[in-house]
Write a protein that binds this DNA or RNA. Sequence first.
DNA 1: GTTTTGACGGCGG
DNA 2: TCCGCCGCCAAAA
Length: 116
Amino acid sequence: MTPGTERNRFFEDVCEVVKLVPPGRVTTYGAIAHYLGTKGSARLVGWALNQAAHRSDVPAHRVVNRNGLLTGKHHFTGEQSMEARLMAEGVEIADNKVVHFRQLLWEPHRHEEHLL
DNA sequence: GTTTTGACGGCGG
DNA sequence: TCCGCCGCCAAAA
């Protein structure tokens, strides 16, 4: 049993939040960081996702940056690119960014009351 | 042990 | 609106 190190906790928390993102919607690194209470550490979310890159149960392709850009697409080495995965869910992609990003954005903190 | 890098974001100019 | 700097924290060099 791995010791309950906080970094591991953070890693797991990020995975859990990403799992909550509905298909066809996207969220951002910053939104996740904010939801976890580590507001200024959006980079750590990227770090955690990188660790989870090979976990099929974590839809990491639904996480984009604050501009809706697919900044992490280079890390999806699988057969299906990040772009393809999003398009398969009905998310429109143009010029490496999510079309109608503002509409498709799903923010954890905005749904926490709904979840609770 | 120190320095650089990175799937980011906010703020100032 | 576009550009650059700074802060954030962990991992890799």
